[in-house]
Amino acid sequence: MKTAAERAAAAPAPVVPPSSPKAGTTGRQGGPPWRRAILDQVRAYAFLVGGLLCFAVFSWYPAIRAVVIAFQKYTPGSAPQWVGTDNFTHVLHDPEFTTAWQNTLVFTALALLIGFAVPFVMALVLNELRHARAFFRVVVYLPVMIPPVVSSLLWKWFYDPGAGLANEALRFLHLPTSNWTNGADTALVSLVIVATWANMGGTVLIYLAALQGIPGELYEAAELDGANIWQRVRHVTVPQTRFIVLMLMLLQIIATMQVFTEPFVITGGGPESSTVTVLYLIYKYAFLYQDFGGACALSVMLLVLLSAFSALYLRFTRTDD
């Protein structure tokens, strides 16, 4: 027989009922729910104000200031003078104005033909890989991680007509060499190749993410209907990635219309002004001619053109959800 002490030790511990919350409290730490909600909103707006201040100081204020200077005669060390539309008139009569716009439009068209189709094809190829997919993603994205000036200097050496790697490869293959960036008829195309190589990594990854979001059942249904690879791309891939394609096309047009690094580092706008773009002409007005009014007038023209194009583009490509 168990003793009284053993029976007491073996008995289960009594269950203590939880104490009821005091009157006037919510049973939740931090006060009533409405106070927590207000604090959450205050924190959210505090973070938002920080971002808005950064945009206001580094983006919006310079943009508004540039619009004001476009109507002023502004040179360093002197007080600005209001001149109305004289800066726009002066820029329009500049012989390089037409050349810069022609080069920019040709560069944009070539970038769409080369730099828009190539990333899409590469994304299709990467999407079909079954082995070493991650490795090839890294390889494709590597050029994006190189600073633009560094990649431009590398390509400048690559295009050197004497000891450059491009002409050395052509000589090895017993093919005629090229002047590349030293020829007025090949310089712009050479810069398009540089810009495509340097920027297509991010575009490829975005396309690849869009392709992997397409349901596999659609491809299986197309295969059962006897569709070949080109028909699957046309009737399944392109419609399913239409929104991404249209948005990236808009962003690429806006980016290529503002090309500056490649002409500045590789060709310096030459030869024979064949690579002078609008942004490079803005640089010349501001830092070579010390005419900040003319530079801002050109900037306003580019802003108006890109804004109008973006609005029309979004209007004509808008579809229902």
Rank of each mutant, 00 (worst) to 15 (best):
M1F: 13
M1I: 12
K2A: 13
A4N: 10
A5V: 11
E6T: 12
E6W: 08
A10T: 01
A11C: 10
A11M: 14
A13Q: 08
V15K: 11
V16E: 11
V16D: 07
P17E: 13
P18I: 04
S19N: 09
S20P: 02
T26V: 10
P32N: 10
W34G: 08
I38K: 12
A44K: 13
Y45R: 07
L48C: 11
G51D: 04
G51A: 13
A56R: 00
W60H: 02
Y61K: 04
V67R: 01
V67S: 12
F71C: 09
Q72S: 14
Q72M: 15
Q72Y: 07
K73N: 15
Y74I: 00
Y74P: 00
T75N: 04
G77A: 09
A79T: 13
W82F: 15
D86F: 04
T89S: 15
V91R: 08
W101F: 14
L105A: 14
F107R: 03
L110K: 05
F116N: 10
V118P: 04
A123H: 03
L124Y: 01
N127Q: 09
H131S: 12
A132M: 12
R133T: 08
R133A: 10
A134L: 10
F135G: 05
R137Y: 02
V138K: 00
L142P: 00
P143V: 07
P147I: 06
V150H: 01
S151N: 05
S152L: 07
L154K: 00
W155P: 03
W155T: 03
Y159G: 02
D160K: 06
D160H: 15
G162C: 02
G164Q: 11
A169H: 05
R171P: 00
R171M: 11
L175G: 02
T177Y: 06
N182K: 11
A184V: 13
T186G: 03
A187V: 05
L188T: 06
N199A: 12
M200G: 01
G201V: 01
L205G: 08
Q212N: 15
Q212Y: 03
G213V: 07
I214K: 04
E217Q: 13
E217R: 12
Y219V: 06
E220S: 10
A221W: 05
A222E: 02
A222P: 05
L224P: 04
D225H: 03
G226I: 07
N228S: 05
W230Y: 14
P239A: 09
R242I: 06
L246M: 12
L246W: 02
L248F: 01
L251F: 12
T256K: 14
T256N: 15
M257F: 15
V265A: 01
E272Q: 14
S274D: 02
T275D: 04
L281H: 11
I282E: 06
Y285T: 03
A286M: 05
Q290S: 11
G293L: 05
A295M: 07
C296P: 00
S310F: 09
Y313S: 08
L314S: 07
F316Q: 12
R318Y: 11
T319M: 11
D320S: 12
